[in-house]
Simulated scan of single mutants.
Amino acid sequence: LAEGATALVHGTTTGNLVEPSVLTDVPAGSALLQQEIFGPVVFLVPFDGEEEAVRIVNDTPYGLSGAVHTGDIERGVAFAKRIDTGMFHVNDGTVHDEPLVPFGGEKHSGLGRLNGETTVEAFTTIKWISVQHGRSGFPF
């Protein structure tokens, strides 16, 4: 708000409960647009056309998750492919996690992916241990 944004909804914090905030008129150079905010905060940023939307969305050092809502699924998927995030959802929210689907971001939003086989690969190594009881006979 000190940078010139307008709060359409200005949530308060009571203990561990953080109410949502909705901001508009966020200046293009605002630090808010360059941060990864894990909270109930939404910025309404106007844009002229899909090219400018892609530029605005990708102009951040972070890229965990994103979403677009559209009546044209194919256009939504084409848009999603142009966004530098680890996850992108068409006609769904940005917070979506499935145990079998790799979860993770791009840029400063982390390295690697978690969940499913990806987690097994990230946190384990394969090792073969062989035990021979008695003498081996050659040829078999």
Rank of each mutant, 00 (worst) to 15 (best):
G134W: 04
E52F: 13
V77Q: 13
F47W: 15
A78N: 12
L8N: 08
G4H: 10
T85L: 01
L33K: 10
Q132G: 07
L114W: 09
V54M: 06
T70V: 10
R135L: 13
F123K: 03
G105I: 00
E98K: 05
R113Q: 10
L32P: 03
T85P: 00
E117K: 14
E51I: 05
E3H: 11
G76C: 06
H89T: 03
D97L: 09
G39V: 05
L8V: 14
E121P: 01
R75E: 14
G105E: 02
G112V: 07
A67E: 01
D48T: 14
M87V: 00
S136F: 10
E36T: 01
E3N: 06
A78D: 15
T125H: 15
D59V: 09
T124W: 11
G63L: 04
Q34G: 09
E3C: 08
A67Q: 02
G112W: 03
L33E: 00
P139H: 00
G49S: 09
G29I: 06
I83H: 07
G116C: 06
F103P: 00
S109V: 02
E51Q: 15
S130L: 08
D97C: 01
G66R: 05
N58E: 11
V22F: 10
V54G: 01
G49W: 13
D48W: 13
G71Y: 08
G39D: 09
Q132V: 13
K81C: 04
V26W: 05
A7G: 09
N58S: 11
V90R: 08
K127G: 09
D48R: 15
R113I: 06
L32Y: 08
A7N: 07
E98H: 10
E117C: 03
S136N: 10
E52A: 14
A67F: 04
Q132N: 11
G63K: 01
L64A: 01
G116H: 03
I83A: 05
F123Y: 15
L17A: 12
G110H: 03
V120W: 14
T85I: 00
A122T: 09
E19P: 06
L111Y: 12
L8W: 15
H133K: 14
G105H: 02
H89S: 04
R82N: 03
P40L: 01
F123H: 09
V42G: 04
I37L: 13
V95S: 06
P61C: 07
A80M: 05
E51L: 10
A53K: 08
D48M: 12
G112I: 06
V120L: 15
N58I: 06
L17I: 15
D92M: 05
L1P: 14
S30Y: 01
V95E: 13
L44C: 14
S136E: 13
